[in-house]
Simulated scan of single mutants.
Amino acid sequence: MQMRNSTPGATHMILQKSIPHNPLAENKLPGIAPLQMADWLQPDEAFAGQMAEREALLAAARDQVLQLDPAAFPAAQELLQLVLDHRYGGARDQVTRPDGVTVSLDWQDPLATLGQICQEDFCILERHEDSREHVLTGAVLCFPASWTLREKFMRPLIGIHHTVDSYDGNIAARVQRLFDGVQVGRPLWRFNALWYQAPDLHAPRLENAPRDDSHADDAPYMRSEQQVILRLPKTRAVIFSIHTYMVHKQDVMAQWGSVSAAR
């Protein structure tokens, strides 16, 4: 893992050397596959660097990276409990992360606590009886890729994705069926991948801002997200977790071959 320390918002060099899935393979929407629960929340070589960046963002720009509807507080606490049971042996007071840092657990601030103990970002989506879609009711999102949490907060799925050209009515219906159908203990996953000119992990973009059209094959960095969908057993909220990989092009090619060969 390569890392260069700097302040939040500056250009960062927190890179992995590999990606566990082939980011060059074609992955049409929604591109969903089953995931073993044991494979969720796996730390990698960039853990320490990414966690330091997450802590800096939560301290300096909390309102940009964390939003929670008060009604979603029970789901946020249930998610924290699930993560602790799954990753930290059921701890309830404090944990020691893989990088050796000890974190005290704040059950009254569950999303911020999650942001300090896991490499992943977490989104909470809930569907109420009067809603046709799941709505984004909470998130700790330190590493957005060309979207902004405050704009998407409390929007339904189609409202979150309305700027994505390929997210048409057919895809929206299929994604909603996935969110309706995902079962407790049987998570689903997909990945995305795009070339980037800069390795910034925190890369928000407002909806009315100009689009970045520089994502060509000659860009030096590959950003790929492992996105997992799972259901909480008590609140029945759906969790969308995001593990971000940022890898230099030469390492992507060394691991997975040429762009043309993979496509």
Results as ranks from 00 to 15, higher is better:
A76P: 11
L79P: 02
G49W: 08
L68C: 10
G49Q: 05
A76N: 08
R54I: 03
A52L: 12
Q81V: 02
D69M: 04
E55F: 03
A61G: 03
L57R: 09
P70Y: 07
G49C: 05
A52W: 01
M51A: 00
G49H: 03
L57E: 04
L82G: 06
P43M: 05
A72S: 10
P74I: 04
M51L: 15
P70S: 03
D63V: 03
Q67K: 15
F47N: 02
L79M: 13
L80S: 11
P70R: 02
L79F: 14
A59N: 06
M51W: 05
V65L: 06
E53H: 05
L79A: 11
M51D: 03
L80H: 13
Q64C: 09
V65D: 07
P74H: 09
E78S: 12
L58M: 11
P70M: 09
A60E: 14
D63S: 14
R54Q: 11
A71M: 08
Q67D: 05
G49A: 04
A48C: 06
Q64T: 06
A48R: 13
D63A: 15
M51P: 00
L68E: 07
E78N: 11
A61W: 08
F47L: 01
L79T: 06
A59Y: 07
A59S: 12
D69P: 00
V83F: 15
D44G: 01
F47Y: 14
A59R: 13
E45H: 10
R62L: 07
L82A: 14
E78T: 09
L79I: 05
V65S: 04
L57Y: 09
Q64F: 09
E55V: 09
L58K: 02
A75E: 10
L79Q: 14
A61I: 00
L79Y: 12
A61C: 05
L68N: 11
L58A: 07
E78P: 10
A60N: 05
L58D: 07
Q67A: 15
D44I: 00
Q77Y: 11
A60V: 01
P74K: 09
A72Q: 04
E53C: 03
R62C: 02
Q81E: 15
G49T: 01
A71W: 04
P74D: 10
L80Y: 11
A71G: 10
L80P: 09
A56Y: 05
A46R: 03
A59Q: 14
F47V: 02
A46E: 08
M51G: 01
A48Q: 13
E53K: 00
Q67F: 08
P70A: 06
